[in-house]
């Protein structure tokens, strides 16, 4: 094998990844400088002041404050640059853009299940169009997993009973690694997949066909929004929550993504976690001005159905994220 043909750095597949690489280079420069400087000085001292005779009695060095002051201040400045740079990079890229395509990801020992906005599903492969920000809303059915796209320098833990989010902007068509980074049991190493960044046209085509082979085509390709709407109607949520006169519950029909006032006077964001929790534990957060009259949907709706209702509520939100 040709040594020089070995790849020694990951692909930088997005603008964020390139920014990341710059910070990494700064850290690398600081590290290399100190490693070389200190090791160099140690080797120099070890040779220059080597013991020439057993009778050597070196004169004591008087402790000075200069080394301690410089040795604290200079590293302090260097690490504060790291801190602010790293924090800025992180926070700037934390909130997904409004126009992102949202894909639902479910981790399960030992596979990744993805669901596209139109309901199409795939397993361990994720097809996304180039040039459009992709937002992943993720949860786990069992243990903790972690969704990791090394070429995008992004990773987020995927937890049971909770939604986490992550987003990225693919810039170049191609196939990229997808790993589970949190140890999750026997086949943790096999909980891997591929991110396929394809052209817009191809993505549209892919969405509307049965799939592109492999494990991509999943059985149930129902549109989650339509399914969610059906559930919304079947379970009479529209009787309670659409703002009809005398309705027993608050109008949440077009409210996804807005701040809701609670009985306690607090405000909470109506997001996936809030909606899901309200279906399971309706009395946790009572909306202001309404009785605690809702019954739990625990046992009535499964995980998937709750996701569908959430998808529906999102689709009809006034300010769809």
């Amino acid at each position: 094998m040709n040594f020089f043909a070995i790849k020694t750095s990951p692909i930088a597949a997005s603008e964020y990844a390139r920014e990341w690489d710059k910070l990494y280079a700064y850290l690398m420069a600081v590290s290399v400088f100190f490693t070389v400087a200190i090791c160099g000085v140690i080797i120099f001292f070890a040779v220059r002041y080597r013991r020439r005779s057993d009778a050597d009695r070196p004169a004591p060095t008087k402790d000075g404050k200069l080394l301690e002051i410089l040795g604290s201040v200079i590293p302090f400045i260097l690490v504060m640059v790291m801190f602010f740079w790293g924090a800025k990079l992180y926070f700037d890229a934390r909130i997904p853009p409004k126009d992102a395509i949202e894909i639902l990801v479910t981790g399960k020992q030992w596979m990744w299940k993805m669901q596209h906005p139109n309901g199409k599903r795939e397993i361990n492969d994720l097809h996304v169009p180039v040039g459009v920000p992709i937002k992943l809303t993720m949860t786990s059915e069992d243990v903790i997993h972690s969704f990791y796209l090394p070429d995008f320098r992004k990773k987020m833990d995927v937890l049971p009973g909770k939604y986490t989010q992550m987003w990225f902007l693919p810039e170049q068509e191609g196939r990229y690694h997808l790993f589970c980074a949190e140890y999750c049991g026997t086949e943790h190493a096999l909980m891997i997949g591929n991110l396929h960044v394809v052209s817009q046209a191809e993505y549209e085509r892919w969405l509307s066909t049965g799939g592109t082979g492999g494990m991509a085509a999943a059985a149930n390709a129902d549109d989650p929004v339509a399914a969610g709407q059906a559930l919304w109607e079947v379970h009479c949520m529209m009787a309670c929550h659409t703002g009809r006169p005398g309705a027993i519950g608050p109008n949440i029909h077009h409210a996804f993504g807005t701040m809701r006032e609670l009985e306690t006077g607090e405000f909470v964001l109506m997001d996936e976690n809030y909606v899901r929790n309200s279906m399971i534990n309706p009395n946790d957060d009572i909306a202001k001005g309404y009785p605690a009259a809702m019954t739990s949907f625990r046992g009535t709706l499964n995980n998937n159905q709750m996701n569908q209702i959430i998808a529906y509520l999102k689709s009809v939100a006034e300010d769809a994220p």
Binding site: W20, L23, Y24, L27, V79, M82, F83, W85, G86, A87, L89, Y90, A93, S146, Y148, P150, R153, K154, K155, M156, A181, E182, Y183
Partner: peptide, 12 residues
């Protein structure tokens, strides 16, 4: 310790 860097390197 650097937040953004950690996200990529964590668990690797």
């Amino acid at each position: 310790a650097t937040k953004a860097i950690n996200v990529h390197l964590h668990d690797t």
